[in-house]
């Protein structure tokens, strides 16, 4: 009788463990929320800084469709980002052409073929490559790729889409490899064994079983690379030639959205139209990245549901 009522009392009483649990829940919740608040705060800041421009001088058709980015023109400044978008898109596109085969190939080799020590060393090497700062890549673009492109293709300047695309591709490849390899590793070995027991060759196992099972993660790796391409600033600033131009070939110099902000923001007066226009580019980049991530998310979800 007494033990029963004691037990009832203890069910109704919050002890130390209960409070610790609650406190930890609250702390974790706060840190999670603060991450979201930061993102929202940054977005709000960027939007506010660009807002003046959006209200006054902004014309959506000029902004999106004009290839002329001439904010410092004395008579008639124009704020068209078409050429900048073309610059960013062409460099990113080329970078993916370079990075996707490289990183998928490397991930398949490391994840499926290399074994033991070789695998461990390769993984460490990839991590090291991923840690190279982007300014170093830009430097390589300037000092190695530039003369190389001039010599090989016999063109006057080597700072162009080709240079930046290759640099950005090499830069994105290690992290893409790393993520793709994680995706391959997440495929359970029993699938490989079951397929091999059917008499499938190593490549058939990879092609028919492992890659389909890992496609979500692989897609994630590629989209991460695309996101990186859009967001990368320093290497692109150094290797593209930084000339406003809608490229007709890979040997044309271009200018990227991010590089424009980085190069011009320091020289504009805070609150000037030019300053606000740069922030509007920031908003645009924000939206693009958001759309890329959202599509990635939807695609991955769609695949998962099947």
């Amino acid at each position: 009788m007494t033990t029963q009522s004691n037990q009832l009392a203890s069910f109704d009483q919050r002890d130390k463990e209960w409070y610790i649990d609650k406190a930890i829940q609250i702390i974790v919740f706060m840190s999670g929320i603060s991450a979201i608040l930061f993102v929202v705060g940054i977005f709000a800041f960027v939007t506010m800084e660009g807002f003046g421009f959006l209200l006054k001088d902004f014309s959506i058709s000029e902004f999106l469709l004009s290839p002329w980015w001439e904010p410092t023109d004395e008579d008639e400044p124009t704020y068209g980002i078409l050429a900048l978008v073309a610059g960013t898109a062409s460099v990113t596109g080329l970078a993916m052409l370079v990075a996707v085969p490289f990183s998928l190939g490397a991930a398949i080799y490391i994840g499926e073929f290399a074994s033991g020590k070789k695998r461990e060393y390769l993984k460490i090497l990839i991590e090291l490559l991923a840690a190279i700062p982007s300014v170093v890549w830009g430097f390589i673009g300037l000092t190695i790729m530039n003369p190389l492109i001039i010599a090989v293709f016999d063109v006057p300047v080597g700072l162009n889409v080709l240079n930046a695309g290759i640099i950005l591709g090499l830069m994105a490849a290690p992290i893409m490899t790393s993520i793709a390899e994680d995706a391959l590793k997440a495929v359970p070995d029993r699938y490989r064994e079951a397929a091999e027991a059917l008499g499938a060759t190593r490549w058939q196992v990879i092609y028919k079983t492992v890659l389909p099972a890992a496609k979500n993660g692989l897609l994630g790796a590629v989209l991460l690379g695309v996101g990186r391409g859009f967001g990368e600033t320093m290497a692109v600033l150094m290797a593209t030639g930084h000339a406003i131009n809608i490229p007709g070939s890979v040997f044309d110099p271009v200018r990227a959205l991010t590089a424009t902000i980085a190069a011009e923001l320091g020289e504009t007066a805070v609150g000037s139209t030019h300053y606000e226009a740069l922030f509007t580019i920031g908003i645009f980049l924000f939206l693009i990245t958001f759309i890329i991530n959202l599509t990635a998310d939807l695609i991955v979800r769609g695949i998962r549901k099947q």
Binding site: R190, Y191, E193, E196, A197, L198, G199, T209, P212, A213
Partner: peptide, 19 residues
């Protein structure tokens, strides 16, 4: 691979391939 194609194996723990 040719040998394995001629021997069918059923594992104790079922493995439905992800297809």
């Amino acid at each position: 691979y040719a040998l394995r194609r001629r021997i069918g194996v059923v594992f104790p723990l079922p493995v439905g391939l992800p297809m």
